[in-house]
Simulated assay, not measured.
Amino acid sequence: MSAVVEEVVQPCPQCGAEIRGDNRFTPWCAGCDWNVDPTGPAQKPGRLERARRAFARRACLLIGEPEPGAVTSDDDRARSIATELTEARQKVARQILRDGVPD
């Protein structure tokens, strides 16, 4: 089953540039970004949504494997530095979970 594709050519209502497109998709102007988001900007998240996102960000700090270090070495000094960095990361994550994110 093949769809009939019809090219649509129209002037941009904002800047007048020629807009070429497909009748299956929403037209938009590459010159001035007219109609890039035809639904409009998203609403600001409410209090509950902000709290949910903040919790998700905090939880991500404690979940998963620690990030690998930039310098890898087998000597004891590198291991102790990696351990200290991991402990510091976990301490900060616990503090954020306990006190929240400062504004």
Score class of each variant (00 low, 15 high):
A70I: 11
S73N: 09
Q90W: 07
L85T: 13
V92N: 13
R98Y: 07
R24Y: 02
F55W: 09
C32I: 01
P41K: 02
G16F: 01
S73R: 05
E49F: 04
G40S: 00
D74W: 02
N23F: 06
C60P: 05
P66H: 01
L97S: 04
P41R: 05
A51K: 12
V92M: 08
A82N: 03
P66F: 00
R20C: 05
Q10D: 10
R47T: 15
R24V: 05
V92Y: 08
P66L: 00
A56G: 04
A93M: 01
E6G: 04
E49H: 06
E49M: 05
V9D: 13
G40Y: 00
A56H: 04
A70P: 12
P41N: 07
E65R: 10
C15W: 01
F25M: 10
G69N: 13
S2N: 11
L61A: 06
D22G: 04
W34E: 06
D76Q: 08
S80W: 10
A17K: 09
I81H: 07
D75W: 02
R89P: 02
T39K: 06
C32V: 00
G64M: 00
V92D: 11
R98T: 06
E67C: 05
D76Y: 07
S80Q: 15
P68G: 12
R47Y: 13
D22W: 03
E84Y: 06
E49N: 03
E84H: 05
E84L: 11
E49V: 11
P38Y: 00
G21W: 03
P45G: 00
R57E: 08
A42H: 05
P41W: 02
V101Q: 14
E6N: 08
A82C: 02
C12L: 01
A51C: 03
V101R: 09
L61E: 12
I63V: 08
P38F: 00
R89S: 07
F25H: 10
V36H: 13
S2F: 13
L85R: 15
R94T: 06
Q14T: 06
D75P: 04
I63D: 10
K44I: 12
A51S: 10
G21P: 03
A3S: 11
V9A: 14
V5A: 06
W28P: 02
L62K: 04
P11H: 01
C12Q: 01
P13E: 01
R98I: 12
K91Y: 06
C15N: 03
P102F: 08
R94L: 14
V36A: 13
A70W: 10
A30S: 10
D22M: 04
D33F: 07
V101M: 11
S80G: 11
L97C: 02
P102Q: 14
V8H: 02
P66S: 01
T86I: 09
T26E: 14
G31T: 15
T39A: 15
A3H: 07
D33A: 12
G31Q: 15
R53P: 03
D103L: 13
F55N: 08
V36T: 15
A59L: 10
E67H: 10
N35V: 05
V92Q: 11
S2L: 13
L48H: 08
W28S: 15
D99P: 00
G21I: 06
I19L: 03
R50S: 07
I19K: 03
P27R: 03
V5L: 11
V36D: 14
N35D: 12
L85W: 04
P45R: 01
P38I: 00
P13T: 00
F25P: 03
C12R: 00
N35C: 02
A30H: 09
